[in-house]
Write a protein that binds this DNA or RNA. Structure first.
Length: 579
RNA sequence: GUCCCCUUAGUGCAGCGGUCAGCACAUCAGAUUCUCAGUCUGAGAACAGGGGUUCGAGUCCCCUAGGGGAUGCCA
C-alpha cells in the first residue's frame, strides 16, 4: 500500500455553464477520491481573460452544488456570489488568476536553467507555418537557432511585438502510464516547443496544470481523453522541474445521440433560428431593439443596450458565431419563445430545468464510460462510491442517451417514493427546487402538505415537469381553466347527454360529504356507485373532465383533496350550469 | 500532413481463448389500474470487413474501412 493520500481535482474554466460531460468528469473524480478515502478538490482555471465570466463561475458552482458535487477544498461559493474570489483549503489560492507569481517564479526557474525561452511570433505567422508545411517539414513552430532567455534582450529583439515564453521540449521519448489508456510511448518529434506563458502574462493551461497539480498534491489526474495526447507535455514539464508525475486516467469522451460533440453551438443554433423567426414577425413590434430591451430587463449585464444590439446583429448575421454569454442566450430563448422541448440539453442546468432528479443524473453519468461489470445499473450515490473503479473505465467514446436517463430518473424517483419518509422528503425537496428553477410560483405556493399529496398521487412520473404539467389544471383559478371539447364529448357531458346526469349524481354525493379526506371520499363515491350498480370507471373520467377540463390528471381521490371541497363544488356546479 | 485511441442488437454496456454471445434502455405484443404514467409477462434484434495465430477467436496479431481525439498565445 502506498502512503500517499488520494487527491483528485476537477478544474473547469469559467467560460460557460457546467457541461454534462464536465459533470461526469467531476463526479468520477469525486467517486474515486471517496472510494479511497481521499479528497476531491475544485480549482478554477480562469486564465483565459477573453472568455472568463463571473456569471458562468457562479453557474458552475450552483450546478455542482445542485448535483451534490461538494469539494474539500476550493472556491467559497457564498463569497463568489458576492463577487469575491475567496476560497478555502491549505493549498490555495484555488483560482489560477490569483497564482500568477507562483507561475512566474516557476517560469523564471526554467528560463534561468535555459529550459525555456522567449518568443514573439504572431498568431498569423504561426498559422502560415502550419498552412505551408510540406510533407517532410516540421508542423508549426520551429525552434530558433538562438534561444533568448533574457527578458530585456527579448523585448529589444521583439521590437514591439508581444512576447511569450516557450518551453524547450527535451529530445527524449516520454512514457505515460495511463490507468485507462495503458502504457504509451510518445516519441519526441511530435512535441514542439509549446507556449507556457502567453503574451498577456497568463500561463497556458499546459503549464498551470502541472504547477498546480503538483503544489496541490494531486495524486490522480482524472480528466477527459481530449487531454491524453497533451499528457507528454505535462510529463516533460514535470521532468524539467524534477517533480513526480501524478497518476493519469483519461476518460472517454461524451457525445450526443448523433455521435457528435455536445456543444453549446447546438443550443445556439436553435436559439438563432427562433430569433430570426421572431424578428420576422413584425406585427408584434418585434425588432432587435425590443429584443435587446427585453433581454436587458431579464438579465443583469454590463453591456449597454446599444452594445447588445450590435452583438445580436452580428450574431444573427454569422451562422457560425456563438453568443459567449449563456444567460443572454437563455434570455433570448425565453423572449423569442423557444419551446423547452426544442432546446438541446447539454448543460447541467438544462437538465435541471427539464425536470430531472440530481441523483438519477449522477447515476446515469457515472455509467458514461464506466460500468461496474456486474450488470447492475441502478445505484445510489453511496453505492457508486463503493462500486467505482478505474479498471472498468472503457476507452470507447460514450454516447449520451436521453431516453435512458429518463428511465433512470423514473426508477430513482419511484424508488424514493416507495421508500421511507426520508426518501420521500428528498423528492419533495427536489421537486420544490425544480419548481423554483422554472419559476412556477403558483405550484410552489400550495404548501408542503399539498405537494406531498401531489407527489404521492402522481407516482410513476418520469420527470418533475410531468408532475407540474398534470397538476397545472388543479391549481388554476377557475377563470383560467379551459375545457377540452373532445374530452367533454367523449364522456357524454354535453348539454342533454346522459353523462351529465351521472356527474350531477356524484356532485350531490360530494356535496354531502363531511370528511374531505381520500379514504372517506372514496368510500362515499364507491357506495354510491354500488347503489347505482355502476363501476368507478364509468364515472371517474367524467368527474376528471369536469374538474380539470382534461382527460389526464392525478388519481381522482387525491385530486379532489388537492382542489379542496370549495374548489371542487365550484368547478362541478359551474360545469353543470354551463350550456 | 503527422501521432494517438476506438469499432458487440437502434442506443449504452457485459464478455478478458471453449457461453444457446448476457444485461439495461428503446421497439413490438399481451395482462393490470378511474385517465396519463406506472407495474407485470413475453418477443424480435448484434460480434465493421479481410487475413493470420490456435484443437478452438467477439476475445490475441496484422491489414482495410469507418468514427473520435491531439497537433492553439482555448482549456
Amino acid at each position: 500500500m502506498t502512503a500517499t493520500t488520494v487527491r483528485t481535482r476537477f478544474a473547469p474554466s469559467p467560460t460557460g455553464s457546467l457541461h454534462i460531460g464536465g459533470a461526469r468528469t467531476a463526479f468520477l473524480c469525486k467517486l474515486f477520491a471517496k472510494k479511497h478515502g481521499g479528497d476531491f478538490i475544485l480549482r478554477i482555471e480562469d486564465t483565459d481573460q477573453a472568455r472568463n465570466s463571473a456569471e458562468s463561475l457562479i453557474g458552475i458552482l450552483d450546478d455542482m452544488k445542485w448535483l451534490g458535487l461538494d469539494f474539500a477544498e476550493g472556491p467559497d461559493i457564498e463569497a463568489v456570489r458576492r463577487g469575491e474570489l475567496k476560497d478555502f483549503g491549505p493549498y490555495g489560492p484555488y483560482f489560477q488568476s490569483q497564482r500568477l507569481e507562483i507561475y512566474n517564479s516557476y517560469i523564471q526557474k526554467l528560463l534561468d536553467a535555459g529550459r525555456a525561452y522567449f518568443a514573439w511570433e504572431t498568431p498569423e505567422e504561426l498559422a502560415a507555418l502550419r498552412q505551408n508545411a510540406g510533407p517532410d517539414d516540421a508542423y508549426g513552430h520551429v525552434r530558433p537557432k538562438h534561444l533568448v532567455t533574457d527578458a530585456n534582450e527579448a523585448k529589444r529583439l521583439a521590437n514591439g511585438k508581444p512576447v511569450m515564453v516557450r518551453f524547450l521540449v527535451p529530445d527524449v521519448q516520454i512514457h505515460v502510464d495511463d490507468l485507462v489508456m495503458g502504457p504509451t510511448d510518445f516519441p519526441p518529434e511530435h512535441l514542439n516547443d509549446f507556449v507556457i506563458r502567453k503574451s498577456d502574462g497568463m500561463p497556458t493551461y499546459h503549464f498551470a496544470v502541472v504547477v498546480d497539480d503538483s503544489l496541490m498534491r494531486i495524486s490522480h489526474v482524472i480528466r477527459a481523453q481530449e487531454h491524453f495526447s497533451n499528457t507528454p507535455k505535462h510529463v516533460a514539464l514535470q521532468m524539467a522541474f524534477g517533480l513526480p508525475s501524478p497518476q493519469f486516467a483519461h476518460l472517454p469522451l461524451v457525445f450526443n445521440s448523433q455521435g457528435k460533440k455536445m456543444s453549446k453551438r447546438e443550443k445556439d443554433k436553435v436559439v438563432k433560428r427562433f430569433a430570426k423567426k421572431w424578428l420576422g414577425e413584425k406585427e408584434g413590434g418585434n425588432s432587435i431593439g425590443s429584443l435587446a430591451d427585453k433581454v436587458k430587463s431579464a438579465v443583469k449585464i454590463a453591456d449597454t443596450a446599444d452594445a447588445l444590439v450590435k452583438q445580436v446583429e452580428a450574431w444573427l448575421k454569422d451562422p457560425d458565431l456563438v453568443l459567449p454569454q449563456g444567460t443572454v442566450r437563455e434570455a433570448i430563448a425565453d423572449v423569442v419563445g423557444v419551446p423547452i422541448a426544442e432546446r438541446p440539453e447539454i448543460d447541467v442546468s438544462d437538465f435541471k430545468k427539464a425536470g430531472f432528479y440530481a441523483e438519477a443524473i449522477l447515476n446515469y453519468i457515472a455509467l458514461l464510460g464506466w460500468s461496474p461489470g456486474t450488470g447492475k445499473e441502478i445505484f445510489t450515490p453511496a453505492e457508486l462510491v463503493e462500486a467505482f473503479n478505474l479498471e472498468q473505465v472503457s476507452k470507447t467514446n460514450a454516447r449520451f442517451d436521453r431516453k435512458k436517463l429518463v428511465s433512470f430518473n423514473l426508477t430513482h424517483c419511484n424508488d424514493d417514493m416507495s421508500g421511507d419518509a426520508g426518501r420521500k422528503e428528498k423528492q419533495l425537496v427536489a421537486f420544490k427546487q425544480y419548481l423554483e428553477s422554472v419559476g412556477n410560483a403558483r405550484l410552489a405556493g400550495i404548501g408542503d402538505a399539498k405537494l406531498r399529496i401531489l407527489l404521492e398521487a402522481k407516482k410513476g412520473w418520469r420527470l418533475y415537469s410531468d408532475v407540474e404539467k398534470v397538476a397545472g389544471p388543479l391549481f388554476m383559478p377557475l377563470s383560467e381553466l379551459t375545457y377540452d371539447e373532445g374530452a367533454v364529448a367523449k364522456e357524454g357531458l354535453r348539454k342533454g347527454e346522459a353523462g351529465r346526469e351521472l356527474l350531477a349524481g356524484v356532485t350531490e354525493v360530494l356535496r354531502g360529504q363531511k370528511d374531505w379526506e381520500e379514504p372517506a371520499l372514496e368510500a362515499a363515491v364507491m357506495a354510491w356507485c354500488g347503489e347505482k350498480g355502476i363501476e368507478l370507471k364509468e364515472i371517474a373520467p367524467k368527474v376528471r373532465v369536469a374538474l380539470t377540463g382534461t382527460t389526464v390528471s392525478p388519481a381522482l381521490w387525491p385530486s379532489l383533496v388537492l382542489v379542496g371541497r370549495e374548489g371542487v363544488m365550484e368547478r362541478l356546479d359551474g360545469f353543470l350550469a354551463k350550456g
